[in-house]
Design a protein around this nucleic acid. Structure first.
Lengths: 184, 184
DNA sequence: ACAGTAAGCGGACTAGTGGTCCGTTTCGAC
DNA sequence: GTCGAAACGGACCACTAGTCCGCTTACTGT
């Protein structure tokens, strides 16, 4: 890989990250703007990432792999971390989950998260429907639901998430393997 | 309301319904195409529905109010009906849930469904977090998850949904008020 | 050191979108 | 039948993702 290519790649990711962080709506961030902010031509952006969706996905994965290098061994902690992550990277996550057909689930970060949760669910209640239940748990922290509840002070998502996890795993398993961050 | 307006309105809704039903991806259906298929000018479409999102929402509500005129008094039945509805109106639902920022939840059909489920959940386990749990239940039948699992034969969503509902409501409440369609 | 070459660059260009605007037509009240 | 307002329709606009190709640049072998 040529040096300039690598340099440009980094510049584009950095610029895109900044723009998405500043925006309040995904489609405020155009590919033109990304290219301009990175100080490269538009062709370079598309050559490097294929298309808009590719850029978004790579950027998201970048953040996600850093954030989820280690996954807690407790479902509630996983979901809480995910929830927080999505609030932090609001606009980017909205972009990822909204773009193109079916795509929110075709994504390495999602797969890893889902596999991990499936394992935890299996450990707690056996393999029956563990895959679906893991999907359901992740659906409860979908970015637009997060966003929607954020502006609706009536509902407390933390509490709700806890109840959901306790319901699915049972009270014993729900609190097992809990990290220090939220002791019991 | 002038006669021509009403006539055009119907024509546009019918045309849009047909186009979405035939499409495999929401953005295969352009506003131009809708106008052309309805035999009216583009201006008429936009005057009648405001913008693309307005058209999609009205069309969706049209189908939804017809389908959900009466709601079953059983959570699992509600979710199953919703799931089926979304499979039937795949592309339209994808369009609705994907368009614009936060919007999937700002929608009469969603509100009605959510209110009804909140009531059922409250009846089964009290008002604590009932609102959030109702959101979580509906999140499990999000259209793109439906779509994703549709092509993944490993996971059985019916079974999974049943387990999810039983977990949240408890086995007794889960089967109460069940319609004939799935007699225990 | 330097020439040769392939990889990479960039921005003008294209095709197509949602949405607007306004001169023209049509409806329906009187 | 007349007339004003309501509704129409399609040319038009602004803007987007994505392409394309002449030009530049970084590496490789000698």
């Amino acid at each position: 890989m040529r040096a300039d290519k690598a340099r440009n790649r980094d510049a584009v990711l950095a610029a895109a990250g900044r723009l998405f962080a500043e925006a309040t709506d995904p489609d405020q961030v155009s590919m033109d703007a990304v290219a301009a902010a990175a100080g490269v031509g538009k062709g370079t952006v598309f050559r490097g990432f294929g298309d808009r969706h590719g850029l978004i996905r790579e950027l998201y994965d970048d953040y996600a792999t850093r954030e989820f290098r280690t996954l807690p061994d407790n479902v509630l902690d996983v979901l809480t971390r995910t929830w927080d992550f999505k609030r932090t990277h609001r606009v980017l996550t909205l972009a990822l989950e909204r773009e193109g057909f079916t795509s929110p689930y075709r994504n390495d970060s999602y797969d890893r998260l889902h596999a991990h949760l499936t394992e935890l669910v299996t450990r707690a209640r056996g393999p029956r429907n563990a895959g679906f239940l893991a999907h359901a748990l992740l659906a409860a922290v979908r970015s637009d639901l997060v966003e929607y509840l954020r502006e609706r002070p009536g509902v407390d998502p933390r509490e709700g998430l806890r109840d959901l996890v306790v319901s699915i795993l049972g009270p014993e398993s729900a609190y097992q393997g809990r990290g220090d961050e939220n002791p019991r």
